[in-house]
């Protein structure tokens, strides 16, 4: 009798099957994000697209909306002289910067990982770029530019130019490499976040996998290709998306959009530019994610 009443008291939750319980909890886990995504992200995003169809004029206590259909988009693409150039520039920057950032950050993260003296010290130092990249020190410190110049003098470029011009590497590739080397400070600054994400990824690779590889007599290169790279590949995807977002958010075109929107007060045109730029960014990200996710390794599939 006692057992019976208990079973009744347990109620509807106990009677759910395990997959259903999982589904229920999964939904509950998602609710906070869902609220934010709808009200604080999707609504403003749709609103921005909506604004782009209007000519918006400031008036006391709000805006005057005049519906002008797609004129803002046409204006951005054909009349505004800077927009197209800046978008192309952003795309070019993306194509150069993202691979370099991922390569540099993975390389440095692997150097930082492992057993060696002074590990804690170096980890703290390599964390500083993240702080610098947040722009908190963007107060106009001359020292910051001094450091940039310092890094340029630090690497002797003339010598490098000589090496590269005689090595037969194409001119364009050479200038990219040179730019990376001379701007190593800003490359490192921008790669800080990717570095720490990779470091966490490397940390969570089970040491047993390396032990097995060692027992089987793998070379270090094989260990890197067959263990480190596949195990870190999900994080490469994250870092790529972050790098893309960072690269596009830092492009000159965002200044143009801000200027159009807030300095010139042309809210409709600014929204149209944001929208177009957003479509370009999403397109690039989806293509890259699609390609890279083909080679990403997960345990669950």
């Amino acid at each position: 009798m006692k057992d019976n009443t208990k079973a009744v008291k347990k109620g509807w939750y106990a009677r759910l099957s395990y997959p259903k319980k999982r589904g229920l909890w999964g939904f509950i886990f998602l609710v906070p994000w869902l609220i934010g995504a709808i009200f604080f992200f999707m609504v403003p995003l749709v609103q921005t697209f909506y604004y782009s169809l209007f000519q918006m004029d400031l008036k006391l206590g709000g805006f005057d909306y005049t519906f002008i259909r797609l004129d803002n988009f046409i204006n951005a693409l054909t009349v505004n002289t800077d927009f197209n150039t800046y978008v192309l520039e952003a795309l070019k920057d993306f194509a150069i910067n993202v691979p370099i950032q991922i390569f540099v950050s993975l390389f440095v993260a692997m150097l930082l990982n492992g057993e060696y003296k002074g590990r804690g010290f170096f980890r703290v130092i390599f964390f500083i770029p993240i702080i610098l990249a947040t722009g908190i020190t963007d107060v106009k410190l001359a020292t910051y530019t001094v450091a940039k110049q310092g890094s340029q003098n630090f690497v002797n470029v003339d010598f490098l130019i000589q090496v590269f011009t005689t090595s037969g590497i194409p001119q364009s590739a050479m200038s990219t490499i040179l730019q990376t080397v001379t701007n190593i400070f800003s490359v490192i600054t921008k790669a800080g976040v990717q570095m720490i994400i990779f470091l966490a990824g490397l940390q969570s690779i089970s040491p047993q996998l390396y032990e097995v590889a060692k027992m089987e007599g793998c070379t270090k290169f094989e260990v890197f290709c067959k263990i480190t790279l596949p195990m870190i590949s999900p994080m490469i995807l994250v870092c790529m998306v972050y790098s893309i977002a960072d690269s596009f958010a830092g492009a000159t075109i965002t200044t143009l959009i801000n200027q159009t929107t807030f300095t010139n007060g042309n809210y409709g045109l600014g929204a149209a530019m944001s929208g177009l730029y957003f479509v370009v960014t999403v397109g690039v990200t989806l293509i890259c994610t699609f390609i890279v996710s083909k080679v990403v390794f997960y345990y669950d599939n």
Partner: peptide
């Protein structure tokens, strides 16, 4: 689709929806 929204929220620079966000 929901996860695509997560990716969107990473990509969209906060300034570009700033005005609409402020108004909402």
């Amino acid at each position: 689709i929901l996860f695509a929204i997560v990716i969107f929220s990473i990509i969209v620079p906060s300034q570009s929806i700033m005005l609409a966000q402020y108004i909402s």
